[in-house]
Simulated assay, not measured.
Amino acid sequence: MTFTRIAALAATTALTATAAFADAHVDRTGWPESFTVGTASQGGTFFVYGSGWANLVADELGISGGAEVTGGPMQNMALVHTGEAQFGLTTMGPAAESYAGTNPIAPGLQMTGACAMFPMYQTPFSITTLASSGITSISDIPAGARIGFGPAGSTSDTYFPAMLTALGIEYDRRNGGWDDLGGQLQDGLLDVIAFAAGVPIPAVSQLEVQTDINIIEFTEEEQAAILEAFPVSAFEIAPSTYTTLEAPARSVAMWNFAIANCDLPESFVYAVTDVVMSDNERMVGIHSSARETLPENWDKNTSLMWHPGAARWFIENAGATIDPATIYGN
């Protein structure tokens, strides 16, 4: 299982005493000399968010670290489970499938070596077309439409095709990175892109600068049908998210969580969690979706065992009532 290194590793020099865990009093026994964070394709929110917090943690803790382009949540579960990546980003649906042994990357393997670290944000499911296509609703999508669902094995590729099938849409399924699919849509090689990513999605923001697009919402009936059939919750994309939107766009969403290899030292994961969760303003500066990267959202973990270092941080700093039976190693 290979993946391409994109972010250069951050400098390993010691930092100033203002860094939360950079002083000599912290037990760094067993800490890795470097770390990687599995994200997703370029042009998606996972890559921007993951690259940003990887660099932030590397800077604050004085450890070499950076982000990796991957196939997204399913592959990240596999990479973190095996320890090929120390950290990764996933969503609750793929996490549950990976624990159950139904991850398509390694069917039958229960990937219980990946533990919950901290809540990220909700991933809305949204549809984008060129305005010139005339498609203004899901029911307008013609039979056989060429739909880009993101990287193979991503949250979007795992759930959006099934959602559209449930809504009676017939399509020609295409995969690729978000930047690439955005270019294909603009060049007329795709009819629709079905995104599942934190908003604003960089590829959509870029598209609406370059051309006129439609952002398609679910009808109330379509939303209700999807809520009944899939592990998602109701969501509205705020009109301030994109210049194209003039009103809230009805959608559904799934929570994302950062994950850590369960065998990483407790003190290390505690320190990483502290860097990310103690200053939300810095995280929002990385990507606006981090407005939901808040301590009180610890309870959105519905699928994963907790890493003991992360669990201790939320118990001590956020008043979390985490069941000890859900903490790895207990």
Rank of each mutant, 00 (worst) to 15 (best):
T302C: 01
I327Q: 04
H81D: 15
M74D: 14
P151Q: 11
T2R: 07
E84S: 13
G83D: 12
S133K: 09
A143V: 13
A40E: 14
S156I: 01
G144K: 12
T102Q: 04
A260R: 02
F47Y: 14
E84A: 13
G43W: 08
F257S: 11
N55R: 13
A320W: 08
A20Q: 13
A116K: 03
I259F: 06
A19S: 12
F46G: 00
G43D: 12
S139H: 11
Y171C: 04
M283G: 10
F35P: 07
M283N: 13
I237C: 05
A114Y: 07
L185Q: 06
A145N: 05
V37N: 09
R28A: 10
F257M: 14
V272A: 11
T112D: 12
D140P: 03
I259R: 06
A116M: 11
M163K: 03
R5G: 09
A14Y: 05
L89Y: 01
Q186E: 15
Y99I: 15
G188N: 08
V272I: 14
E246L: 10
A40T: 14
S288L: 07
T29N: 12
R174C: 02
G50A: 10
H81N: 14
T241A: 03
A106H: 05
T273P: 10
D187P: 02
A224F: 00
F35H: 03
P248D: 03
F230T: 00
W178N: 05
L181K: 05
N280Q: 15
D179L: 11
P73I: 01
A54R: 01
P151N: 13
L109I: 14
I63M: 11
I286K: 02
I201P: 05
Y99C: 05
A24D: 12
R250E: 09
G88P: 08
I147R: 01
D140R: 03
N256E: 15
G50M: 08
M117A: 15
N317P: 00
T136Q: 14
I6S: 02
R173D: 00
G329L: 07
E236M: 10
G88I: 06
A24T: 13
S41I: 01
E316A: 11
T129C: 12
G285A: 15
G50V: 06
T16N: 15
A116C: 11
G72D: 05
F257N: 10
T2Q: 10
V57M: 09
P161Q: 09
T241L: 00
L245K: 00
S137R: 14
K300E: 10
A320Y: 04
Q75E: 15
P94R: 01
K300L: 07
P324Q: 02
G177H: 07
S34V: 06
P94A: 08
H81P: 02
I135A: 12
L264N: 09
L15E: 11
T165K: 11
T29C: 07
G65Q: 01
A203D: 11
E84F: 08
R282A: 15
T302H: 00
A249E: 09
N175H: 15
M254L: 13
D23S: 13
E60D: 13
D263W: 08
L264V: 08
D212V: 00
P119S: 06
G144R: 12
A114N: 08
G309S: 02
Q42Y: 01
E316T: 12
P119H: 03
G62F: 09
Q186V: 02
I127D: 03
I327Y: 06
T91L: 08
A116D: 13
V284L: 10
A24P: 05
